Amino acid sequence: MDWSVITGNAGLLGRAFLTTLWVAGATILLSVLLAFPLAVMRDGRIRALRWTAAVFSWAMRATPALTLLFLSYYGLPQIGIYLDAVPAAIAGLTFSAAGYNMEYIRAGLRAVPATQYEAARALGMPGWMILRRVIVPQAIRTIMPPLTSNLTLVLKGSSLAGMVAVTELTGAGMALISETYRPFEVLIVIALAYLGLNGLLIRLQKLVERRLGPGAA
């Protein structure tokens, strides 16, 4: 093995790692922020909002993430919307992930017994406060395991961003392999980077569960 291929290209791999971190982190955050209101809409009382959320969920889960990436980067300019490569990648991946995330969040919210809603309404609590103080703290432990599993897939799926001219870690690694013919060393480093990022994500899951779970202020 010749690790000089790694040390000699540390700058390239480091920049690509930061790009992957930015794309994946922004996608995870935005997809969860988008999914939560959609999950609430899906089971709300307003029929138009229910149907909007249902169609969004079906369309995003039925469409390959790569197709959404291409639509964001190559399709939107056809209707006058121009995005650089990184924002386009984040947009496509966010919509793809949000379709799944909303279903996990919705299932967790529905798992809370209806009596909890009724008791909170009887105390005169407004809807937003019921969600924040009663429903979400009870639902979070149900939501987090499947949601985190999907977010690890989102993290790994950020490698698709290389298909729309984003120099992320996997794409940079493949380019480096084609130049140096040293696949083993490069792929080991890429694998370790993703292992570390996924380990961090799982750690954050535990912190969120403790922070927002039952008994949290």
Rank of each mutant, 00 (worst) to 15 (best):
L69H: 03
L33P: 03
V23T: 06
M144R: 02
V208Y: 03
A175E: 13
R61S: 09
M174A: 15
T67K: 01
E209F: 10
G11C: 07
T67L: 15
A65K: 10
A111P: 12
P183L: 06
A161K: 03
Y73Q: 07
T115V: 13
A216S: 15
L201I: 05
T94K: 02
M174S: 15
L83E: 08
L155A: 07
I105N: 00
A165Y: 05
A107L: 06
Q205M: 12
L21K: 01
A54Y: 00
V40N: 01
R210M: 10
L38T: 11
R106D: 03
L93W: 03
V112T: 04
T27Q: 09
E103W: 01
R133W: 01
K156V: 04
L13I: 13
L83I: 12
R61M: 03
G99L: 05
F36H: 01
A98K: 05
M125R: 02
G199C: 07
R141W: 08
A65H: 09
G124K: 10
L151Q: 15
L207D: 05
G162Q: 11
V164S: 07
G75H: 09
L147P: 11
L176Y: 02
L123M: 14
T180F: 05
P183V: 11
M60K: 06
S158C: 12
S96N: 15
T170I: 12
V112M: 05
Y117A: 07
L68D: 04
I105D: 00
A114M: 04
A89L: 03
Y181S: 14
T94W: 00
V166T: 06
P214N: 08
V55L: 12
R133M: 11
P183Y: 01
V154S: 02
L176N: 06
L207S: 11
W51P: 00
V40G: 03
P77W: 06
T7P: 01
R203Q: 14
R203A: 15
R42Y: 09
L21I: 09
L131Y: 14
A54W: 00
M102K: 11
G199W: 08
L18N: 03
A89N: 08
S4W: 00
A161F: 04
M125Y: 04
A120E: 02
L151T: 08
I46M: 05
I202A: 06
S158H: 11
L49K: 03
E185M: 11
A107E: 08
G215A: 09
G173F: 04
A62N: 13
I81T: 03
A10V: 13
L187K: 00
Y100N: 06
P137S: 11
T27L: 10
A48Q: 07
M125A: 10
T27M: 08
R47E: 13
A48P: 14
P113C: 08
